[in-house]
């Protein structure tokens, strides 16, 4: 396992370097003078020259890349043009908000998806099976941004059950310590605050989690159907194991391996969906941070936002690979 982990980590190096080159290129591939793009057409030549100097644009490309990497490795993501603040500092609360949202979206997707898949397989060809799979089919085809808008319309505006935007109540903002609001409210014993935070989490988590939920449900169902045919299940049944334990204890263990891969893959993909979900729900995460930067052409923030999300994506994929090989040792020897 250790050797495999090391091998996977080494394989990650060229990918991370490639990613950094790609992200570094964004600002250099934009046609025209980056300084002019950043400052606008009306900027004076002196200001433009100073900007070029500040950005290091007068240096050869290789030197620029080297400086960029040195800064990056020291945790310096550059400075936002709009706010003039360090991106590394500015991005922290956004990052925490995205992690919190992604976690709850995946929690929703796994709990609902896995159980729906299990019951659909257990009661194969029943009305539950048909309805669950129909919902899953529609869920896979659902544009996340439209689902979010519809949720807002129905649950926030029409029924007024849940808040439609934001991460906490404007009237009663959370006193943040860790940037993770759930943890903050628990530490401070602010259970009214916790209730508010959870209410704010429901709609965006469901919007973001619906597609993975649908995919997980379909995967769990087909995987369970396969495992339920196995000899050891028949043996267990012959021994008189109750159906519930047969399904949840015996079959699920083996059926869960392919499901886990899907869960991991989908967690990574959620980060892409987060850009859209956060935009709709005004959720102050990295996706929203990136979206706001796009609209004002804040290129350093766009670069850092993309790099940040891509890095988390790569790390999640690595964790899934390692987890997968821990569960199924055959993977390591391939």
């Amino acid at each position: 396992m250790f050797a495999y982990t090391v091998r996977r980590l080494i394989m990650l190096i060229p990918v991370l370097i490639g990613m950094s080159i790609l992200v570094f290129s964004i600002i250099h591939l934009i046609p025209g003078d980056p300084a002019k793009t950043l400052l606008g057409e009306k900027a004076s030549p002196e200001v433009l020259e100073k900007m070029r100097e500040d950005l290091g644009l007068n240096d050869p490309l290789l030197v620029q890349y080297k400086n960029y990497m040195v800064n990056l490795l020291q945790g310096d993501l550059g400075t936002s043009i709009k706010t003039k603040r360090s991106i590394s500092e500015e991005i922290k609360p956004y990052l925490a908000a995205t992690v919190e949202l992604t976690f709850f979206a995946m929690l929703f997707a796994v709990i609902v998806g896995v159980n729906a898949g299990i019951i659909a397989a257990w009661k194969q060809n029943s009305w539950f099976d048909y309805i669950a799979m129909l919902i899953a089919l529609i869920g896979v085809s659902m544009p996340v941004f439209w689902l979010g808008l519809m949720e807002q319309y129905i649950f926030a505006q029409k029924l007024q059950w849940l808040p439609s935007i934001g991460r906490d109540s404007i009237l009663n903002p959370i006193n943040s310590i860790t940037n993770f609001y759930i943890i903050d409210t628990v530490i401070q014993g602010d259970f009214d605050g916790l209730k508010q935070i959870l209410k704010h989490l429901i709609l965006p988590s469901i919007a973001l989690g619906t597609i993975p939920m649908a995919i997980i449900a379909r995967m769990t169902r087909s995987s369970m159907l396969e495992v339920m045919k196995a000899d050891y299940i028949r043996t267990a049944r012959a021994k008189g194991v109750a159906q519930f334990f047969l399904v949840y204890k015996h079959a699920l263990k083996n059926a869960f391996i392919p499901v886990l891969t899907v869960v991991g893959l989908q967690t990574g993909l959620l980060l892409g969906g987060a850009v859209l979900t956060e935009t709709i729900f005004a959720w102050p995460g990295v996706g929203k941070y990136l979206y706001d930067a796009i609209s004002v052409r804040d290129y350093p923030v766009i670069q850092s936002g993309i790099l940040m999300i891509a890095t988390i994506f790569v790390i999640i994929n690595l964790i899934v690979d390692l987890l997968y090989s821990a569960i199924d040792p055959r993977i390591r020897y391939q």
Binding site: V15, M19, L22, I26, L269, L271, L276, I302, I306, A310
Partner: peptide, 24 residues
């Protein structure tokens, strides 16, 4: 294959955002 790996290391919509940012 490495180029593919790098491209797949980005959530696809994010890579699309980066490309459109470059192209306009």
């Amino acid at each position: 294959s490495r180029v593919f790996d790098i491209m797949l290391a980005f959530p696809s919509i994010l890579l699309a955002i980066a490309i459109v940012t470059i192209l306009g």
